[in-house]
Nucleic acid binder design. Structure first.
Lengths: 233, 233
DNA sequence: TCGATTTTGTCCACGCGTTCACAAGCTCTT
DNA sequence: AAGAGCTTGTGAACGCGTGGACAAAATCGA
């Protein structure tokens, strides 16, 4: 789960839109369908798809029902057909050019990631301010100067950017991104960015994820000590 | 937002527990308080803290109220005191030893990340199966053989592990982790892992995050073409 | 001392998300 | 042709999460 969704209210119940929670699961279904298709499976039921995605079958069917009635009662869903419908709904009929800012380990990991191409995402550029890194090659892309940001955003119609810089640099980078016209930011820096209302931010924080797990671990061991119940009266 | 929480039902409304949504925000508050403390701020109001964390003030106060009444009406919260209370609630009075599996770019980024130590998280080991990587050094930690997993988990009482391997290897790694006694897995591999009910999994998927942003971008441009309303009748 | 001002803690209402349960609808066998 | 057996799509109920609004409580100034 990402920690920050859009700042503006009302998103999540758009006019014609699909519920946010559903949107977050659609890519999961899409990938599972891809795996099934590779395995030669042509049809699958909500139960099977629910199994591999770890989602409740009823929830999955309701999710899919927001797209339309693409299943067949008594049979299930046509894998290829459903795949196309989800991809279309997610906007994967077009390719999204994305700029990655920060060519450190995390930026490199992102650039190297192979799965983007098949999901309608193309890396337009990897930018950094460090002269040592500029010109080097990460994941087949040459690292360019951060100064070229505005130019690249304009020329390649970039609306989505990834921030993979240290926390100290993140806000400055975000300001530059917004000024250049970027409207969606995926933020890996451990800071909440201050951005205008019309810019969507998703914060992915490795440390926070671990802290959440640690909280549950703590409660777990604590509960065991209590005997799992509250019979201390 | 992470896509998968615990598989077992009932988590999110624990007996004495704090709501899941709140738990996910507490680390955010904690970090903001740390920043304020560094800046010499000793007291802050819910409004100020809400500002920097991008959270609604009322929501923030409600979140904090689950921990107890640690504020002072008319004044606000004592930064250090609140910091301690949140840290305690999150289980940071103890240090959690974490194993990272996969010493590629992502594993390296995690190992290098400086912010863990101050958040009660310690990297017990970085493991890999690739002989080329074993023995190399990432973020001051020597990469060890994946074969040593069970041993390390036992000796250092590890209950939390991070999967930073390619998707193909992830399920095998997860099985080994579960067998070794790990009960919380932070999964960066683009797959939903099949794990027993008592094991908690959080899936962080870079590609999915981008797909969600792309969906909103698509809807945005689509809405503009429609004039923002549905007046086509 | 008392009133003005600030800010917390929480009641309440509302909306989103989840899940159950079942009717509707398709296929296959007899 | 008809019934048995699946599986979808969805109505309805419930619970969690959010945010407005305000009383309670603390400080400050006169």
């Amino acid at each position: 789960m990402t920690l920050l969704r859009s700042a503006r209210p009302g998103v999540g119940s758009n006019d014609r839109g699909i519920p946010e929670a559903t949107v977050a699961r659609l890519p999961l279904y899409l990938r599972a369908l891809g795996t099934l298709a590779e395995g030669g499976v042509t049809t699958c039921s909500s139960g099977e798809l629910a199994e591999v995605t770890g989602v409740n079958p009823a929830k999955l069917r309701k999710d899919l029902s927001y797209l339309g009635s693409y299943g067949t009662r008594g049979v299930g869903y046509d894998v290829e057909y459903l795949r196309y419908q989800i991809a279309r709904e997610l906007g994967q009929t077009q390719t999204w050019d994305v700029v990655i800012v920060g060519a450190g380990n995390l930026g490199s990991a992102l650039s190297t990631y192979q799965g983007f191409g098949s999901r309608g995402i193309s890396i337009a550029a990897v930018l950094d301010t460090d002269p040592q890194r500029i010109g080097s090659n990460v994941g087949g892309v040459e690292v360019e100067s951060f100064d070229r940001l505005a130019e690249i955003v304009r020329e390649r119609h970039v609306s989505i950017a990834v921030v993979a810089t240290p926390a100290e640099a993140a806000q400055g980078v975000a300001d530059a991104l917004v000024a250049a016209g970027v409207t969606s930011i995926l933020n890996f820096a451990p800071t909440v960015l201050q951005v205008p209302d019309h810019v969507e931010q998703r914060l992915v924080d490795l440390s926070i994820e671990l802290q959440i797990l640690a909280y549950h671990e703590q409660r777990r061991t604590h509960d065991e000590a209590d005997g799992g119940q509250e019979v201390m009266a």
